[in-house]
């Protein structure tokens, strides 16, 4: 019974990772590649590590594996968020089918920090005022 569960979890994890790598190869721009890599890698590796915990079956190893899973779930999104900000600051091109760019005008392209809300507001007002003058 435990063996079937281990096989199933390993198989799910390997499939998800395979899909993630196909996505990494086929997606059109950096940001989409990053999303496919992050989501799938977190889920797939967590499932494979869970299979290891079930296979060994002792509390010590299970806690070890749980620590690795929690660390992965915490760290992979943070790391890929930072990579995404760096890619945005480097002004890498987006896919031509992209519909919205929610970070537009909201991020300082020199430091990579998000601008405070009132600064964004005042810039908008300045833009409107300039348009009125024209």
């Amino acid at each position: 019974m435990a063996e079937i569960l281990v096989i199933a979890l390993l198989l799910i994890g390997a499939l998800v990772i395979l899909i993630a790598s196909i996505g990494l190869l086929r997606m059109p721009d950096v940001y989409l590649r990053m999303s496919s890599a992050t989501i799938a890698a977190t889920f797939g590796v967590a499932s494979m590590l869970l299979a290891v915990a079930i296979h060994f079956g002792s509390l010590g190893q299970a806690l070890h594996v749980l620590g690795v899973i929690v660390f992965l779930i915490l760290s992979v999104p943070v790391g890929s968020h930072m990579l995404g900000i760096a890619a945005y600051v480097a002004e890498l091109p987006m896919w031509k089918g992209t519909v919205t760019d929610q970070l537009k005008d909201k991020i300082n392209l020199e430091t990579g920090c998000v601008k405070p809300q009132r600064e964004v507001q005042s810039e908008k007002e300045e833009d409107i005022a300039e348009e009125d003058e024209l």
Binding site: V6, L10, G13, A14, I17, A20, S21, L24, V30, R33, M34, A37, A41, G44, V45, M48, L49, A51, V52, H55, V68, L72, V76, G79, S80, L83, A86, A87, A90, L92
Partner: peptide, 26 residues
């Protein structure tokens, strides 16, 4: 095409090797 693609791919490579190591451990 860009350096960022390579870094994302290398990051995923390390994470995939974690999965491979867990399969080896079993």
């Amino acid at each position: 095409p860009s350096l960022m693609d390579r870094v994302v791919a290398l990051d995923l490579l390390v994470i995939v090797s974690i999965g491979g190591l867990s399969a080896y451990a079993v």
